[in-house]
Design a protein around this nucleic acid. Structure first.
Length: 486
DNA sequence: TACAATT
């Protein structure tokens, strides 16, 4: 193993971003001055705040500015920003006080409070952008009891540090989502809370133990959103219906490019690149003219993307009349037996002569569902109301449009659930619940339509529908406010 | 096996 010199280690430990040459040299213990000599070796609080000072007249330099700021405390460092090449005063500065408290006092007293001579906007005194915006001391807390209030959460977290902010996440109706943000005044406090509380207990009514982790950064959030998007497009891509394969391809390309750019220069970029690559792969699959949802012949789907599954479709449902028949597939299937994504293939369509009328009803439905993607080329002529693009954020439909489905097969995912209910209307969302710890389906889920009629039709056809040994239970989702105690 | 996705 390589040995680092002391110098390298010291550099790593003490290097704190951009520090002006004028004040830096003495800090690393190079000085032989006696200990009690703070005048020549300024020390700052560990949690000192670097302030950005804006709207400074260009004729004022450090020595002119010091008196103005020194009245709030001892200055550790004051640097006027200068153009890298011309050396020109940029009208702003960075200021760090030895004491955190001084910075807060200066900010309170000065920020936007007075205008320096010759300026037409008031002085700016606020934490520099380089200062933590709080992300490294802000915690996401999950798996709370939905009855727990801000105060309850505060009590839980207060022994680990001083809490600057505590917010329960709530839905539009004001109900707790069972999670919260807690911001401490320092990273160390936040870290301590994680160590002590994460997984430490299970709140009554929560499905697993308490989650305490650092909150996402903006970048992580964006990537998460992208990944959700990718997940949805894996099994069923509504854009293919709207725009045809090429439109979908173009959109995927755009999203992939965006994802790649989000990751640029950040520590998350490998992840973004991976996700982007996944999407490009999908674009390749979905972009095949005339075969928007046909899988490649091999089994090389990247991890994390549902592999499109293959079901042969009964020939009478041929809707492929548009010009430009798909060429024979790479797997040798001729177009007459074109293959489609149909997640319900685990349960082959029953013969139309099956005894159970529900099964019969659904047999037709399955064929319809299977044929549906094939019709994308002419869907707008074939259907008076083509399905809308599914907005990503759309979660729940209006009252009466949301179904609760129980006894789902273990292997059903969101995509399969959607496929199963598409024939009854516009599915605006489908969600199978998975155990967060095991990623296993909990065998229930929700499907939302854009109108109550579709929901009713789905209940009529699908409630009691037998799959394997189980019968689906399909009913309206219980309204949120039902049975709420006073 | 039971009722909405946490940022």
């Amino acid at each position: 193993m390589a040995t680092l010199t002391n110098g390298q280690v010291d550099g790593a430990v003490h290097g704190v971003g951009v520090v002006s040459a004028s004040t830096n040299g003495l800090v690393n213990g190079l000085s032989h001055s006696p200990a009690g000599c703070p005048a020549t070796i300024p020390m700052k609080d560990h949690d000192a705040i670097k302030l950005f000072i804006g709207q400074i007249p260009r004729n004022l330099d450090e020595k002119d500015l010091r008196p103005l700021f020194e009245e709030f405390g001892k200055i550790y460092e004051l640097t006027v920003l200068k153009d890298r090449f011309t050396g020109m005063h940029k009208g702003c500065a960075f200021l760090t006080y030895c004491a955190r408290e001084s910075a807060l006092k200066a900010q309170n007293a000065l920020h936007e409070q007075k205008t320096l001579p010759g300026m037409n906007r008031p002085i700016q005194v606020k934490p520099a952008d380089s200062e933590s915006r709080g992300e490294d001391r802000k915690l996401f807390v999950g798996m709370l009891n939905k009855q727990q209030s801000e105060d309850d959460v505060r009590r839980l977290f207060e022994s680990f540090g001083s809490i600057e902010e505590c917010t329960i996440l709530r839905g539009p109706d004001g109900n707790s989502k069972g999670c919260a943000f807690v911001k401490y005044s320092s990273h160390a406090e936040a870290q301590a809370a994680i160590g002590a509380l994460h997984g430490s207990q299970t709140m009554p009514g929560a499905s697993s133990s308490l989650v305490v982790k650092f909150a996402d950064t903006d970048k992580e959030r964006t990537i998460r959103r992208m990944q959700q998007m990718a997940g949805q497009m894996g099994i069923f891509n509504p854009m293919a219906l709207q725009f045809g394969a090429y439109g979908a391809y173009a959109q995927v390309q755009q999203q992939a490019a965006l994802m790649a750019s989000v990751g640029q220069g950040g520590y998350l970029s490998p992840m973004a690149a991976f996700a982007a690559a996944q999407m490009q792969h999908m674009a390749t699959i979905n972009g095949l003219p005339g075969a928007p949802l046909t899988p490649t012949s091999g089994g090389s789907t990247p991890p994390g993307i549902s592999a499109p599954t293959v079901t042969s479709i009964p020939s009478p449902i041929s809707v492929n009349g548009f010009t430009g028949m798909p060429p024979p597939q790479a797997n040798g299937q001729p177009p007459a037996e074109a293959v489609f994504t149909n997640g319900i293939h685990h349960y082959p369509a029953q013969s139309p002569t099956a005894a159970d009328p529900l099964q019969q009803a659904y047999t037709g439905v399955q064929q319809y569902a299977a044929a549906y993607p094939a019709a994308y080329g002419q869907i707008s002529q074939a259907f008076p109301h083509p399905p809308p693009i599914i907005p990503q954020q759309q979660r729940e439909g209006p009252e009466g449009c949301n179904l609760f489905i129980y006894h789902l097969p273990q292997e059903f995912g969101d995509g399969e659930l959607m496929q199963m209910f598409l024939p009854f209307g516009n599915v605006i969302s489908s969600k199978v619940f998975v155990d967060r710890a095991t990623n296993q389906s909990k065998c229930f889920g929700f499907v939302s339509f854009d109108n109550p009629g579709s929901a009713q039709a789905a209940i009529q056809s699908m409630n009691g529908f037998q799959i394997g040994m189980k019968r689906l239970k399909v009913q309206l989702k219980r309204p949120k406010d039902a049975n709420r105690p006073y």
